[in-house]
Amino acid sequence: MSPFLAALRKDLLLQWRTRSQLVAVFVFGASALLLFSFAIGPNAAALRQHAAGFLWLALLLASTLALADSFESEMAERALEGLLLLPADPRALYYGKAVANLLQLALLGAGLVPVMVVLYDAGTARVPSLLGIILLGAAGLSAPGTLYAAMTAQLRARNTLLPLLLFPLVVPALLAAVKATSLLILGDPMGQLAAWTMLLVAFDAIYWSLCGLVFERVVED
């Protein structure tokens, strides 16, 4: 088994064993969507107009909880250090965890879509495209999120620092994801979806390549 597959298997197994936390994170995201809808009020057009933005905000807030959780088990008994000393390739460990986090966030995003449809009356017939955008947006959150979660995992103020570090970095990917989702919900008369999707793919490529290179410096003494 390649080191990457070994790391991915390990992280998926850990996520499965702690799946009750994912349920809690989903409930948090759904609650955020509900609270955002209160801010708009009973205006169906305005709710539909802002649905994409609120979906991604809810996912962004929920992602900080999920990402921070993903390093709890690594730090409790210094399991990550134990793997590095075997030695395990730090890049394999990073990409294994980042892919596992990507799958978790994509699942979370897909789970929040029906909540958004019910609360904001913001459905779309292009469901596969919407799921594709959620996958790409989740990739834009998970790559830098995994890196910063590793960086802050041993700090006392990690719950504050992770969003402070992560949010500014993911703004470009978040904007592209919001715009692409909005075009899918509200219609795309000018044919802009492909351009926003390409922008999202480009930021994903940058995050996934750079964060993988930096991870070793973050986790080694």
Binding site: L13, R17, E77, R78, E81, G82, L83, L85, L86, A88
Partner: peptide, 27 residues
């Protein structure tokens, strides 16, 4: 080198057998 540290280097959510399997897969 193998180090027996104050910390056990294990994942608490996983079983003893799974922890050894993970170490073996990286070794």
């Amino acid at each position: 080198v193998a180090l027996l540290d104050h910390h056990s280097f294990h994942y608490e959510a996983l079983s003893a057998c799974e922890n050894l399997e993970i170490a073996a897969s990286f070794l």
